[in-house]
Write a protein that binds this DNA or RNA. Structure first.
Lengths: 117, 117
DNA sequence: GAAAGTAGGCACTTAAAAGTAACTACCATA
DNA sequence: TATGGTAGTTACTTTTAAGTGCCTACTTTC
């Protein structure tokens, strides 16, 4: 389990979905730049591996947060984009980002105990 | 790093803070039941170890999201509660919870690919 | 005829996070 | 005199997730 709280609570499920590294950032990009192809997405998220990117996209797709469209041309082209559900999350993420920026200005994250290990 | 996105972005910092297992659940309880002592909190979060609970509380305190009050009696009594910053998060978490509950009803989390490993 | 480009899958390794258990201090009560 | 209760800390082990590199298929371009 990654987003522990008492299992089988919906909050737990949504946190498990969103909490992995990169996940919200991927959503952020899809929201910001519109639907993107796999390769473009990978280049937009510097440092992520194909393995993790694929895994994240699969989970988001399984939850209906993004769609996946595959053209069977060769070489293949796969495009991902936000569904209605994905757009709902946007508001929450926006609100969180706003708080984060304010807290940053207030120095909330400068305590050494919060260091990146 | 736990909440990856490009480092040094405030969103990354706030995600690193909130994303660990149990973290949002701890905030939830403090919000719901008011300030609580360490032991009570531990019993309210079934399954968490003292080690992790302490670690989470320290991080939240370092970010100014909760306060810590220690009476130097014996045995000691330490109480934790939400600060103003903590209460700000509440709105975001409420919004997220609302979405989570609706998605649950819609079956968003029932895909086998989202299984708890 | 060789190489490149796309969207991954698969196996192996590594590193970070969490679990577990034992130990501290000090007093009050039985 | 032994026991329990509080809020941790520390060391050791295990689990889980992520990193890395290699492999595929098929066509188009050089």
């Amino acid at each position: 389990m990654t987003g522990k709280s008492p299992p089988s609570c919906p909050m737990d499920a949504i946190l498990r979905l969103l909490m992995g590294p990169w996940t919200t950032y991927i959503l952020w990009i899809l929201n910001d730049r519109g639907p993107q192809r796999f390769g473009v997405l990978k280049r937009a998220v510097p440092g992520i591996s194909t393995r993790v990117l694929t895994e994240r996209l699969r989970m988001l797709q399984a939850a209906g947060v993004i769609w996946r469209e595959q053209s069977s041309t060769i070489p293949p082209a796969v495009t991902y984009g936000l569904t209605e559900r994905g757009k709902e999350l946007r508001e929450v993420l926006d609100a969180l980002d706003e708080i984060a920026q304010r807290w940053q200005r207030e120095g909330a994250f400068s305590d050494p105990r919060l260091a990146t290990a």
